[in-house]
Design a protein around this nucleic acid. Sequence first.
RNA 1: GCGCCGUUAGCUCAAUUGGCAGAGCAGCUGGCUCUUAACCAGCGGGUUCGGGGUUCGAGUCCCUGACGGCGCACCA
Length: 538
Amino acid sequence: MSTAISPVRNAASRHTVGRPTGRCRRERPRDRNERYVTENPSTPALEDDLPEQMKVRRDKRAALLGEGGKPYPLGVKRSVTLARLRATYGDLGAGESTGETVTVAGRVMFVRNTGKLCFATVREGDGTELQLMLSLAKVGEQALADWKRLVDIGDTVAVTGEVVSSRRGELSVMADSWTMAAKALRPLPVAHKPLGEETRVRQRYVDLIMRPEARRNARQRSTVTRALRDILHDADYIEVETPMLQVLHGGATARPFVTHSNAFDLDLYLRIAPELYLKRCLVGGIEKVFEINRNFRNEGADSSHSPEFAMLEAYEAFGDYQTMASLITSLVQGAATRTFGSTLVRHVDGVELDLGGQWRRVTLFDAISEALGETVTIDTPYETLVSYAEKTDLGVDPVWGPGKLAEELFEHLVVDSLIEPTFVFDYPEETSPLTAAHREAPGLTEKWDLYVRGVELGTGYSELNDPVVQRERFVQQAALASRGDDEAMPLDEDFLRAMEYGMPPAGGMGMGIDRLLMALTGLGIRETILFPLVKPEV
RNA sequence: GCGCCGUUAGCUCAAUUGGCAGAGCAGCUGGCUCUUAACCAGCGGGUUCGGGGUUCGAGUCCCUGACGGCGCACCA
């Protein structure tokens, strides 16, 4: 098996993930605008080449500084949030004033400077906006002139003044004074044109400033993960964190990322799954255990796959795959209810999806048989399966055994049609090396996959806990490795040793967090992940 | 990894057969004490993704590289 991984090992020593020196200097500036933000004082002449709008903002920062002002003061105090102010005075009538003086702060999103009365709209992080008014009569000539001269859209400002309603009925703070809270050196994008796809992903901070949906998505994700944790904690589960840096990769079939420990002079894998460690927890007596954390898989990226993705895995001693099917149902339905108030969710494309009730259940081979119009079982001969594959234009990899081929047929013929939540039960032993043999059906395992919108959302098992059978399965996988299947796992002797101390019978499940968000919202994976991996710009 | 398409001002986009690189918003100057994508007058802003080539002349054609989108392959 070491022959299978040695090429990866060699590649890794050239491209380690960790950076020993901790330095990360780019060899070339990222774009022409960025040369000027380096601290290097020996390039002042380039200042002349700055795009006009950035130069203007830098000049304003310098002007503020030169006059004894502070473009980035510390300890800016606000007395009330915009949201609270709106909640308190939302029904103030047009032209009314409150007599209450407050200090508010926010990012300037809109500016209307006139001769003697200036308007601005500021916004705080959750998207709540409030109007500021600066009148000559209240702030005085100097402060008004400074405001017009120094404030740009995008700056964060703090204003102290009375809470009033404008003649048009807009809740406002009528300033007695204003201060810069943080000067923006780059102009914000136009508010009325949608931001380009790439900018949204690469500069999520801009996306979060400009797009309400981006702010909402980020907050929804937090609500969903908190719901999952709450539900699990309520069921007496214990949350653990197991290694991301592993000496051996295991627990799933996937190609790993490789990195290197300088201290140990040892190549390490970023984990592809936490499973083998969570099972060690079961052995140690943490009988209901879960982890929500990242996995890393060195494989293709598309609308439903990201090289790093968050996953929930949960294991329950004395449970089985039926236990875990119930658990994932309550997790998905609980997350939907706690986040959206209902198990009937509306996706961004307007399509509604009902996640409520009992979900459909079908066995893998029944699903294949139905799609094919021919009865297929675990006993269907390999040659017959190959003929079905050829009939349906599925290319057959000679490395595949009959079980793998059956699964490929399923993915080829059935998966796309599984829109409503559907459990697919009872997979071949061949492709499930960590799963217990089925109690009734020889050759099958007690495993389900949960599909929503044609995407695998989660998977569950009656866990294999016979250490002798487990070792045999691993040896089989290692044999596969020597046949060129580089996803097969190396033998994890420490895991097998743990199993030999006795793991209680248990059910286990895994669910993609990003995919759960996708199932709940209809978003692509790059929208559910705040900062998805992107290639460097230059 | 393979194929197709794209990359132009701060942002979103135009530019005819290869013939002076434009608009809206944003910005700058001036005006306006109730504006909401204000309005009025005036002004500036470009390495057309990088490199090479063809041509009197290239945003446009050819080669090459980077990045992105879509499809395929791989995967969850």
